[in-house]
């Protein structure tokens, strides 16, 4: 039973990773692409982490998975902000030139 729940969560997570990649390819500009990568991939990772945590045997492994999820979530939001800021600043400079 737990295996089925875990497999469903991992499968759903994979769908969100595919959605993020489709958004990355289809969306028109860098800002929209960042939406796809941060939000869809973020939930994809959370679902896969949850599924793997259900299968994991030890509390230590669950804690490690939680730490991985936490740092990836913080890093992805921060990186997308930095990329968007750089795109805005370099784009504004390009318009003046």
């Amino acid at each position: 039973m737990l295996e089925i729940v875990a497999a469903s969560l991992i499968a759903a997570g994979t769908i969100f990773f595919v959605a993020g990649t489709v958004g990355l390819l289809r969306f028109p500009d860098i800002f929209c692409r960042l939406h796809a990568l941060t939000k869809a991939d973020g939930l994809g990772l959370a679902l896969i982490a949850l599924g793997v945590a259900i299968l994991a045997a030890t509390p230590g492994a669950v804690f490690r998975i939680a730490i991985i999820w936490f740092f990836v979530a913080v890093a992805s939001a921060t990186c997308s902000h930095l990329i968007a800021r750089y795109a805005r600043q370099s784009g504004a400079r390009g318009q003046h030139d």
Partner: peptide, 9 residues
């Protein structure tokens, strides 16, 4: 947010 952006994609 993730479902919204996935639907749009």
């Amino acid at each position: 947010g993730a479902i919204d952006v996935a639907m749009r994609a």
